[in-house]
Design a protein around this nucleic acid. Structure first.
Lengths: 158, 158
DNA sequence: AACAAAATATAAGAGCTCTGATATCATGCG
DNA sequence: CGCATGATATCAGAGCTCTTATATTTTGTT
């Protein structure tokens, strides 16, 4: 396949601009896309996407949270979260408790089936998570974590 | 806002699970999302998205590439790239040269306006790119780059 | 009490991305 | 030559994500 291109000659993955000399933003996008794909493949059996898994996880840690707070936690817009929550509700993984003390806010909580689903997903994903740190020394992992957090928070209002 | 939640107490950005102790995959997704948003804000004036900018950049480095090779380079599916290319063509930033020596393959190339657009976008993005490395030592930057490449390539066929 | 401001939720429209399916073209094998 | 295989391109359907806009509720000001 792809016999002989005269021009620049397309590099293999991990070489040239595709490798460690490439733009950091480009590498970041590639890494996130590749990992998202691996997560969704691992969770395909359960029909759960990576954003859904993240939402279930947050909901498990902070039950009763509102859509708006969920969006803040996930660094997403409320509209985006509303779509994800809608799909999860349709699948029966979470329930909305519409009213509350306040009128407009809806509290979100995992259903029993949602909790069971999260447990199964978590096992799969933790395997991938371990692979993520496999080749890193303790120092390197710390540097990577610090960097990821700083990138996520740059330009944030808080 | 959000006066007193009894339960776990929602952490501020960069703290607890949202910070350096969180899941690496979660941090990766947040960082990529936040950076993509910054890029698209910076390029909003030109109506160019991050994937479109990446496509223009690749096309500039490898003119005459096919949709399929472009997909391989970008670690995306051919269908995804086809959508992006379609939007860029509609905007007049690239041209398809349908035929070739082979019959089915379409060669892609930047138009003059596409080249001018890329130049303007590149200036904006390079500013963000520099911010990405601001707090990193040379050693740390090397570790981050190596890690991103390894994540992007894990599970790849070749 | 009345109005303004802020927060919450949702809808509409657009782009990105996947999977699965379909059509075209090239090459290799009989 | 005829058919199978593989590569390329595209369509259809689904989910994620953004922006912009709208409706409802709560809160603060007058």
């Amino acid at each position: 396949m792809r016999k002989q291109e005269m021009p620049p000659a397309i590099p293999a993955a991990g070489e040239g601009k595709r490798g460690e000399e490439g733009y950091l933003g480009y590498l970041l996008r590639q890494a996130a896309g590749a990992y998202r794909l691996r997560v969704e493949r691992a969770l395909d059996e359960f029909g759960v996407t990576q954003p859904q898994f993240a939402t279930l996880t947050i909901l498990s840690a902070y039950p009763g949270i509102s859509n708006a707070d969920l969006a803040r936690l996930a660094v997403l817009t409320p509209q985006t979260v509303s779509v994800i929550v809608g799909n999860l509700e349709r699948a029966g993984s979470l329930v909305r408790k519409p009213h509350a003390v306040h009128g407009r806010i809806q509290h979100l909580d995992l259903s029993d089936s949602g909790r069971a689903l999260l447990k199964k997903c978590r096992e799969r994903v933790q395997k991938l998570e371990r692979e993520l740190t496999a080749g890193l020394s303790a120092n390197e992992e710390r540097a990577v974590r610090r960097w990821l957090v700083s990138v996520a928070m740059a330009g944030a209002t808080g």
